[in-house]
């Protein structure tokens, strides 16, 4: 994994105007992974989308860290259910076409 894919937490804090403690709390609850290289802390570029969502939930809807965790768990469940709905719809279509 190249260093280019990692983003320095300090940079993120400046860009998004958030406290480093907020990102660390997200990490402590298991919502994002932090990678430590020497004395610097980074997060993976791939998780930026999720991090932004967490910042918005906190900033725009006043959802606290525990609430964000609940929301993310529910969203994960929803994604799985959506996939299941697609599979079931296709199966139903198959049986309706073969009545």
């Amino acid at each position: 994994m190249g260093r280019r894919e990692l983003i320095l937490i300090e940079t993120l804090c400046i860009q998004y105007e958030v406290e480093a403690s907020f990102i660390k709390e997200l990490h402590s609850i298991g919502l994002i992974e932090i990678e430590k290289i020497e004395n610097d802390e980074f997060i993976h570029e791939e998780t930026i989308g999720d991090l932004e969502k967490m910042i918005r939930l906190n900033r725009e809807l006043n959802v606290n860290i525990e609430g964000i965790d609940v929301v993310f768990n529910l969203l994960q469940k929803e994604i799985k259910m959506q996939e299941e709905i697609i599979a079931l719809r296709n199966r139903l279509k198959f049986y309706e076409e073969n009545k």
Partner: peptide, 14 residues
């Protein structure tokens, strides 16, 4: 506004 935003926020309604 807060109440409706919590209901319809795009992050909660992908």
């Amino acid at each position: 506004y807060r109440k409706l935003a919590r209901k319809y926020h795009p992050d909660l309604n992908p």
